[in-house]
Design a protein around this nucleic acid. Structure first.
Length: 829
RNA sequence: GCGAGAGUGGCGGAAUGGCAGACGCACUAGACUUAGGAUCUAGCGGGCAACCGUGGGGGUUCGAAUCCCCCCUCUCGCACCA
C-alpha cells in the first residue's frame, strides 16, 4: 500500500478484516470489567446524515479507546423503526412501510459499516421486529395490571382531514404539519402511562446523576416542575360541598376576592344550573373548549371569564366571593381551580380589572405602601403580610408555613405538592406501530390479551391511503376477537403505541437480543446494564431521556431489571450547522456523508467531525476544514513511507539511550502527548484538543526527522514517536492507524494493542522556563534548574537585564512566586 | 416572562486564577515546478512605537478570558403551572 494515500482501499481492507475476525463482538464471558457504550439509535429514514456521522464518530472513539484500556466493551446498534415518517413515506410512494424501512436499514447499515464504526452487529435489531415488540406488549399488560397503564377520556389535538391525534410537536402554528388543516381538539379515549407515579423519584434521582450535563438535569427538573403549596377548601354558598384550590401563595389568602375554574372542570356547568347564567356559561364553555391547547398557550390570548352564578366562602375572611370560569385556568394542573388574588398575581390582576373585582393588597413590600386602587400591575415578590388577621406583620415566606399549619388545624385544607409533569398519552390512531394488546368486551370492559397469546401481530396485508381512520380499524380479521374472560364477542384495540415506547427500553434489549422466552436474559442484562456512557443529541433532553428513566424504574418494580437509572453518563452532542442553520433538507444546506466518504474516506470524515469542535458544542461545517483534516492524514502517510526503511532498521531502545537535550525534549513531548490525549478523552471528551496535541507531536517529529534522522538514537526516538502517534490516533482514524501500524512492522492488529502509558520519568524536566513579571506584566523569562529554590529563582529574576530596566531605582514591595511557572515582582507605588 | 448556556484574531476553536490566541483553516511571501487548487519553508490580533487587546461597565487579587456585581447581545428549553 505504498505511494499515495488511498482511503478507499485501506478502509475496506480493514473493515473486511474486522468483520471476518468478529473483532467487536461482545461476550459476557470475560475477566475484564464491562463497559456499555451506547449512541442513540437512528430512525431509518433513508440515509445517514452528518448528525449521525458526528454522533457515531464520538461514540466510536470512546468504544475503541475503552477496549484499548482493557474494558470488555458492548457497543451495539439498531433501528428505531416504527413511526409516522415510515407510514407517510409509504403512503406517498405506495410501498409498504415494512419494505421501505427494510430498504433504508439495509442502506444505512452499509453506510455505518463504511464509516468503520466498531459495532457488535450480531446484536442488531429493529423495533418493528415482532421478536422485539412482543415484549413491549407484555410490559403494557403488566403495567395495565399494576395500574401503570390506564385509559381515560382526554382532550387532544385532532386533525379532521388526517383523522388522527397529533402530538403537540406535530402542530405548527395551529395547523397540521402534514395537510395544513387547522387543528382542532377532540375528546377521545386514550391509553396513558402513569409516569406521574414516578414524578418524585424521577426528580430526586436527578441529584444522583453526576455524569449528566447540568443543562439536561435542569430541563428535566423544570419539566417535572414540583411546586410546594397548599390545598384550600372554599365552602359553597347555597349548596353542599366545597371548592378545592391549589396555591403556592397561601400567604395571600386574605386577598382572594374570587375563584376561577377551568372550563373543563366537572363543576363548570353544574355551578350555573338554576342561575340566570346557565345559558351563557354553556356557550362560554363550548367556545373556549374549541380553541386547541397549543393555541391557547402560544397566542397572547386575552384573559377572559364568565361568572357562574355561584358563590363560595373564603374561609379566612368569611367573605362571600364569586366563582368564575376563566380561559387561562388549566384543568391539568393543580385542582383545576384557582383562587383569584388580583393584587399579587398578574393574571388575576388583569382579570379583576376587566370584571371589576376588588383588588386587595395583603403583601406590602419593604418601605412602600401599595394601594389596590392605584396599582398598575400585580406585586409578586415577597413582603410583609398585611390586612391578614392574625398573620398581619409576618414576613410572607414564614407566613406560608403558618397559614398551612392553621389550615390543617382548622380542617380547611392541607399542605400539598403539585407537579407539572403529566401522564404520558401513548395511543396513536396510526398503523405503523406496536398494537396495543387490549380487547374490549361489552360485558367485561377492557381486557388484556392473555400473555400466552402474545404477540398481537401487526398485520401486513393492509391498504394505506392516508385517508380516514387507521387501516387496522377497517380490518375485521384483525379487530374481531373473542373476550378471553367471558368468551363473548370482543373488539381489539386498533390504536398503536407512541414510538417513544420502543426507545424507552431498547438499551436493555441489546444485552440479550436473542432471548426468545423473555424480554431479557436476566444474567446478561444484569451484567451489562446500566449503560456506562450514552451519547446523543440534546433534542432528546426531556422526552426520550425522561421516558427511558421512567421505563427503567417501572421495569425494576415489575422485577425485570435491578437498576433504577439506565444511563450513568450522558454526553449530549451539539448540532451540525452550515451557513448559520442546522443542516436540513428544507433549508437545502445538507452535506451528504456518502459524498464525503467517496471523496475523502471515512477517516477524514471522522477526523473532521471530531476535530472541528468539542462534542457538546454545535459544529460549524467547513469544506476547508475537511480539506485540512485530509491534509493532515496525507502528511502523516507520506512521512511514514518516506522514512519507513530507516525506521524499520532502528532497533535501539530510545528509553535506554542517553540523549542530547533536544531529543530529550522530543521524548518529553511524546510522553506529554500521551498524557494530554489520555486526559482529554478520559476526563472530558475533548477530542479536538486531543487531536491538536497529536498534530503538535507530529510537527515536532517532522522537524527532528528533517535534520537528524541520520543518527541512530534519533531514528529510534522518531520511530517511538511515530508509533505513539499511530496508537493515539487509532480511536479517531482506525483504518489509517491500522495500516500505518502494519507498515511499521507490527503483526498484531491495533484493536488488540493496549493504550500507551506515559512515563513520569520521561516527563521530568531538567530546566524550567520561568516567566518574570513586574507588576503583573511579563518583562522577561529565565531558565533555571528544575530543583532550584525560591531564593535562587528570585535572585535570577532580579538579575535579568530586561527585568532590570523596569525595576531600576524602584522599591520592591514583594515578590510572588508560583512554583515552576512564574515570578511576579511587585513594586512600591 | 421564567430557566439554562454562550459571547476570545478574518473563521472553527485553545488557555478554568499565572506568557491570551495552542491546533487547524483562510491569507501573504518564498522554494520546487511546464503548471499548481499538490508539496515544502517562513510569516500571520491591532499599533511605527510606548502600548492596546477576550461583548460593555465596575469590583476582588501581586496577577482576571477565567472569580464576584450590574448591563448588552445571541442560542436553546419551558411558556397563562396558580
Amino acid at each position: 500500500m505504498e505511494g499515495k494515500y488511498q482511503p478507499d482501499r485501506i478502509e475496506q481492507k480493514w473493515q473486511r478484516l474486522w468483520e471476518k475476525n468478529k473483532s467487536f463482538q461482545a461476550t459476557e464471558a470475560s475477566p475484564l470489567p464491562k463497559y456499555y457504550l451506547l449512541e442513540m439509535f437512528p430512525y431509518p429514514s433513508g440515509k445517514i446524515h452528518m448528525g449521525h456521522v458526528r454522533n457515531y464518530s464520538i461514540g466510536d472513539v470512546i468504544a475503541r479507546y475503552k477496549r484499548m484500556r482493557g474494558y470488555n466493551v458492548l457497543h451495539p446498534m439498531g433501528w428505531d423503526a416504527f413511526g409516522l415518517p415510515a407510514e407517510n413515506a409509504a403512503i406517498e410512494r405506495g410501498i409498504h412501510p415494512a419494505k421501505w424501512i427494510l430498504e433504508n436499514v439495509t442502506n444505512m447499515r452499509q453506510q455505518l459499516k463504511r464509516m468503520g464504526f466498531s459495532y457488535d452487529w450480531a446484536r442488531e435489531f429493529a423495533t418493528c421486529d415482532e421478536a422485539y415488540y412482543r415484549w413491549e406488549q407484555l410490559f403494557f399488560i403488566k403495567m395495565f395490571k399494576r395500574g401503570l397503564a390506564y385509559k381515560k377520556l382526554s382532550t387532544v389535538n385532532w386533525c379532521d382531514k388526517c383523522q388522527t391525534v397529533l402530538a403537540n410537536e406535530q402542530v405548527e402554528g395551529g395547523h397540521c404539519w402534514r395537510c395544513e388543516q387547522e387543528v382542532g381538539v377532540r375528546e377521545i379515549n386514550q391509553w396513558f402511562f402513569r409516569i406521574t407515579a414516578y414524578a418524585e423519584e424521577l426528580l430526586q434521582e436527578c441529584d444522583r446523576l453526576p455524569g449528566w450535563p447540568e443543562r439536561v438535569l435542569t430541563m428535566q427538573r423544570n419539566w417535572i416542575g414540583k411546586s410546594f403549596g397548599a390545598e384550600i377548601q372554599f365552602p359553597f354558598v347555597d349548596r353542599e360541598g366545597k371548592l378545592t384550590v391549589f396555591t403556592t401563595r397561601q400567604d395571600t389568602i386574605y386577598g382572594a376576592t374570587f375563584a376561577s375554574l377551568a372550563v373543563e372542570h366537572p363543576l363548570a356547568l353544574e355551578l350555573s344550573q338554576g342561575t340566570s347564567q346557565e345559558t351563557r356559561v354553556r356557550e362560554f364553555v363550548e367556545r373556549i373548549k374549541k380553541i386547541n391547547q397549543a393555541r391557547r398557550g402560544t397566542d397572547e390570548l386575552e384573559k377572559e371569564g364568565l361568572f357562574t352564578g355561584s358563590y363560595c366562602i373564603n374561609p379566612f375572611t368569611q367573605e362571600k366571593i364569586p366563582i368564575y370560569l376563566a380561559n387561562f385556568v388549566l384543568m391539568e394542573y393543580g385542582t383545576g381551580v384557582v383562587m383569584g388574588v388580583p393584587a399579587h398575581d398578574q393574571r388575576d390582576f388583569e382579570f379583576a380589572r376587566k370584571y371589576g373585582l376588588p383588588i386587595r393588597v395583603v403583601i406590602q413590600p419593604d418601605g412602600k405602601m401599595l394601594d389596590g386602587e392605584r396599582m398598575t400591575e400585580a406585586y409578586l415578590d415577597e413582603g410583609v403580610m398585611a390586612s391578614s388577621g392574625p398573620f398581619t406583620g409576618l414576613p410572607s415566606e414564614a407566613g406560608r408555613g403558618k397559614v398551612v399549619a392553621y389550615l390543617e388545624e382548622k380542617g380547611w385544607g392541607k399542605q400539598s405538592i403539585s407537579y407539572r409533569l403529566r401522564d404520558w398519552g401513548i395511543s396513536r390512531q396510526r398503523y405503523w406501530g406496536t398494537p396495543i394488546p387490549i380487547l374490549y368486551c361489552d360485558s367485561c370492559g377492557s381486557v388484556p390479551v392473555p400473555e400466552e397469546e402474545l404477540p398481537v401481530v401487526l398485520p401486513k396485508n393492509v391498504e394505506l391511503t392516508g385517508e380516514g381512520s387507521s387501516p387496522l380499524a377497517r380490518l375485521p380479521e384483525f379487530f374481531k376477537a373473542k373476550c378471553p374472560k367471558c368468551g363473548g364477542p370482543a373488539r381489539r384495540d386498533t390504536d398503536t403505541m407512541d414510538t417513544f415506547v420502543e426507545s424507552s427500553w431498547y438499551f436493555a434489549r441489546y444485552a440479550s437480543p436473542d432471548e426468545d422466552r423473555a424480554p431479557f436474559d436476566k444474567p446478561r442484562v444484569d451484567y451489562w446494564l446500566p449503560v456506562d456512557q450514552y451519547v446523543g443529541g440534546i433534542e432528546h433532553a426531556v422526552l426520550h431521556l425522561l421516558y427511558a428513566r421512567f421505563f427503567t424504574k417501572a421495569l425494576r418494580d415489575m422485577g425485570w431489571l435491578e437498576l433504577s437509572e439506565p444511563f450513568t453518563n450522558l454526553l449530549t452532542q451539539g448540532m451540525v450547522i452550515k451557513d448559520g442553520a442546522k443542516m436540513s433538507k428544507s433549508k437545502g444546506n445538507v452535506v451528504d456523508p456518502d459524498f464525503l466518504i467517496e471523496r475523502y474516506g471515512a477517516d477524514t470524515s471522522r477526523l473532521f467531525s471530531l476535530f472541528a469542535a468539542p462534542p457538546e458544542k454545535d459544529l460549524d461545517w467547513s469544506d476547508q476544514g475537511v480539506e485540512g483534516a485530509n491534509r493532515f492524514l496525507n502528511r502523516l502517510w507520506r512521512f511514514v513511507f518516506q522514512h519507513r526503511d530507516a525506521l524499520l532498521h532502528s532497533t535501539s531502545d530510545p528509553s535506554k539511550t542517553e540523549l542530547p537535550p533536544e531529543l530529550k525534549e522530543l521524548r518529553r513531548q511524546i510522553h506529554r502527548t500521551i498524557k494530554k490525549v489520555t486526559d482529554d478523552i478520559e476526563g472530558r471528551y475533548h477530542f479536538n484538543t486531543a487531536i491538536a496535541s497529536v498534530m503538535e507531536l507530529y510537527n515536532a517529529l517532522s522537524l527532528v526527522a528533517r535534520d537528524e534522522l541520520v543518527q541512530e538514537e534519533a531514528g529510534a526516538l522518531v520511530k517511538n514517536g511515530l508509533e505513539t502517534i499511530v496508537v493515539l490516533l487509532y480511536p479517531f482514524v482506525p483504518h489509517m492507524a491500522s495500516e500505518l501500524w502494519e507498515n511499521l512492522g507490527h503483526q498484531e492488529g491495533l484493536e488488540r494493542v493496549r493504550w500507551p502509558e506515559y512515563s513520569a520519568e520521561a516527563l521530568q524536566e531538567e530546566e524550567l522556563l520561568i516567566v518574570v513579571q513586574v507588576d503583573g506584566r511579563v518583562r522577561g523569562r529565565i531558565t533555571v534548574p528544575a530543583d532550584a529554590g525560591e531564593k535562587f529563582i528570585e535572585e535570577m529574576a532580579l538579575a535579568d537585564p530586561k527585568v532590570g530596566d523596569f525595576i531600576r531605582g524602584k522599591d520592591i514591595r514583594r515578590v510572588v512566586q508560583v512554583p515552576r511557572r512564574l515570578v511576579n515582582i511587585v513594586l512600591g507605588s
